[in-house]
């Protein structure tokens, strides 16, 4: 109760923060927001479960084709590098939250900027080095897929099987949906950066930063599963 004497004008926004009127206190509000975020994340997990289920079923139905198609169409080096990029960005988000908890806005700023750069690197690699070449070679999902003889020669003997299109369908919709999540995440992180620059995050209030962080981690976790499934095995 020592800081009661200071007028609220001198305080930063996060120090002046009062919870919405239907909450009993700020702690309940933050806790409730976090629970809401976890519920939302569970819907994300189940949303991606659809892709994983389709993957599992078709891999079971066409096991041989699956492994070969994976090696033929996808480059594990790009996927692997992107995995590392996302892991790094997850770590920097953790540090950004630590910055808010320990009242070091500069730490939060720097780490958020690194995270956003990581998100952009991920997307640029994805678009420029994966989606674009595939688009050019007609390696498109399902019925739009077209075989090109020259790519068979390049493949060192591998003749694309008749169910490559299904593999590519799952690749496109799963990574596409994931990519959209990365893009949304980048926007959310930028929003957090803007709020942090205006001084809205501090030890007593960093709810939205924490929740955006949780969202970013789930995007990372989904990639942790997508990477080996699509690129490696």
């Amino acid at each position: 109760m020592t800081h009661v004497s200071t007028s609220t004008e001198d305080l930063k926004p996060h120090e002046r923060y009062v919870p919405a009127s239907h909450w009993r206190n700020a702690y309940d509000e933050a806790d409730g927001a976090k629970l809401g975020m976890w519920l939302f994340l569970s819907t994300e997990i189940l949303l991606f479960a659809g892709f994983f289920c389709a993957y599992a079923v078709f891999r079971m139905l066409y096991p041989g084709v699956w492994a070969d198609a994976s090696h033929y169409y996808l480059d594990w080096r790009i996927g692997g590098f992107n995995t590392l990029v996302l892991l790094l960005s997850s770590f920097t988000v953790v540090l950004a939250i630590r910055g808010a908890q320990t009242n070091r806005p500069a730490m939060t700023n720097i780490n958020l900027i690194i995270t956003i750069i990581c998100a952009l690197v991920f997307l640029v690699l994805k678009l420029g080095w994966e989606y674009y070449p595939k688009w050019v070679h007609d390696e498109l999902p399902g019925g739009n897929f077209a075989y090109h003889s020259h790519s068979i020669l390049e493949a060192g003997g591998y003749v694309p099987g008749s169910h490559d299109n299904i593999f590519l369908s799952i690749y496109w919709i799963a990574t596409g949906t994931h990519g959209v999540h990365v893009l949304i995440g980048a926007f959310l992180l930028t929003w957090c950066l803007w709020l942090n620059m205006k001084g809205f995050y501090g030890p007593k209030h960093y709810t939205s930063l924490e929740n955006v962080g949780l969202y970013w981690h789930i995007v990372d976790i989904i990639w942790i599963f997508l990477f080996p499934l699509l690129y490696l095995v």
Binding site: L35, L41, S42, T43, L46, A49, F52, A56, V57
Partner: peptide, 22 residues
């Protein structure tokens, strides 16, 4: 613990979903 329960429930649902379909 509640947040862990939420995650566990969704992972359980995923396992059911993929398991039975397969």
């Amino acid at each position: 613990l509640l947040n862990t329960v939420v995650v566990a429930a969704s992972v359980f649902a995923v396992v059911l979903f993929i398991g039975f379909s397969m």
